[in-house]
């Protein structure tokens, strides 16, 4: 097979992944919409598994508010199980999309003969892959996080949509400035960071919703099946705590590369500036979690601010600013 065939195959795989993701989105949305409103679910006794006074008990089994299926009359499938089935279908489709995206990225790399993240199109593709992969791993380790589905699939679909319409460039070799093994290291770290920032952001949004519902004593089909807000907060924290050193490394790797390519390790190029802003905001998030009066909701808002800075750094800086990081491969304005 030639590079040309690989490139076409990669493109087809991206479109297939978008199709399966759209179906996954439908399934996830249906799960949320048709939740546990059925007759049986309404009347079935609910067992609540709670961790004893969860002040410091990390890693406790996830608190799930599950209807006690054992007590239901036989042959009557509860609505909530049907909803769970929809969620399961959505998740399976997401796993399939992950495999398709993985293949798309691999073939793109084969077509270009290099690490497949040399321009914005490829970066978007790889980010979508990482977000999807991080979600799949998260669900595998904590099944209840499957409920994040919609919040993951929507940004991934948007990113892919933007990639194939606005950002697309043909597979090809790189400009000399990007020919460095630091491209593999620095950009891979940035992509993985981006994926986990996004996942953390999705969990944070759920946390904020759940926290609000808990505070007001509200209950709905989503709130009943989500873990307690405290649990969501902890999950989000773990994701951000995992990604913060990685993001630090991505910046440092970029600085080493910059020193080797431009003669200075830091020059306040717009991309560098916004990477710094993102870093500082997440440093603020980590501090806020240990500061009285800033825990919980406020810290969560800071995390979302940091995520916005990251996203702006990716799209905004590449598109609106001219700087040394103008590698987007976009046509000149």
């Amino acid at each position: 097979m030639t590079a040309h065939t690989f490139a076409h195959l990669s493109n087809d795989l991206v479109y297939s992944a978008m199709a399966t993701l759209t179906l996954a989105l439908l399934a996830f949305s249906a799960e949320l919409a048709f939740g546990d409103r059925g007759r049986v679910a309404r009347t079935s006794r609910r067992t609540v598994h709670r961790v004893p006074v969860a002040v410091g008990a990390g890693g406790a089994p996830v608190d799930v508010d599950t209807p006690d299926v054992a007590e239901l009359p036989e042959g009557d499938l509860p609505e909530s199980t049907r909803a769970a089935k929809l969620g399961g279908i959505g998740f399976s489709l997401t796993v399939l999309s992950f495999v398709l995206l993985l293949a798309a990225v691999v073939f793109r790399g084969l077509a270009a003969g290099r690490a497949p993240w040399g321009n914005m199109y490829e970066f978007s593709l790889a980010s979508a892959l990482v977000v999807t992969g991080a979600y799949v791993i998260a669900v595998w380790r904590r099944p209840v996080l499957r409920l994040l589905g919609v919040f993951i699939v929507v940004p991934v679909l948007l990113t892919l949509g933007l990639a194939v319409t606005v950002l697309y460039v043909d597979a090809g070799p790189l400009v000399p400035a990007l020919k460095s093994y630091w491209l593999v290291i620095h950009v891979a770290a940035a992509i993985i960071s981006g994926g986990i920032f996004t996942l953390g952001g999705a969990v944070t949004v759920l946390y904020l919703l759940q926290e609000r519902w808990e505070r007001r004593g509200l209950s709905n089909s989503l709130s009943r099946r989500l873990p307690e807000s405290e649990q969501l907060d902890r999950t989000a924290y773990r994701l951000f705590a995992f990604v913060f050193p990685l993001w630090t490394f991505a910046i440092v790797a970029g600085a080493i590369w910059a020193e080797n390519a431009w003669g200075r390790y830091w020059g306040w190029d717009p991309k560098e500036t916004w990477a710094f802003v993102t870093w500082v905001v997440f440093a603020g998030y980590l501090h806020a979690r240990a500061t009285a009066g800033w825990k919980g909701r406020r810290a969560a808002m800071i995390a979302l601010l940091g995520l916005s800075a990251f996203i702006f750094n990716y799209f905004g800086v590449n598109i609106f600013f001219t700087g040394l990081h103008s590698y987007g491969g976009l046509p000149n304005k």
């Binding site: 306040w268 802003v277 500082v280 440093a283 603020g284 501090h287 240990a290 500061t291």
Partner: peptide, 27 residues
């Protein structure tokens, strides 16, 4: 105090922004 550190971190992030929006003497 941690609260002041937090405030200064935000100020630092905020203070870095105009340099990316306006042209800079060095670059």
């Amino acid at each position: 105090s941690m609260r002041t550190a937090l405030l200064l971190l935000f100020l630092l992030a905020l203070a870095a922004v105009p340099g990316s929006l306006l042209p800079q003497q060095g670059n």
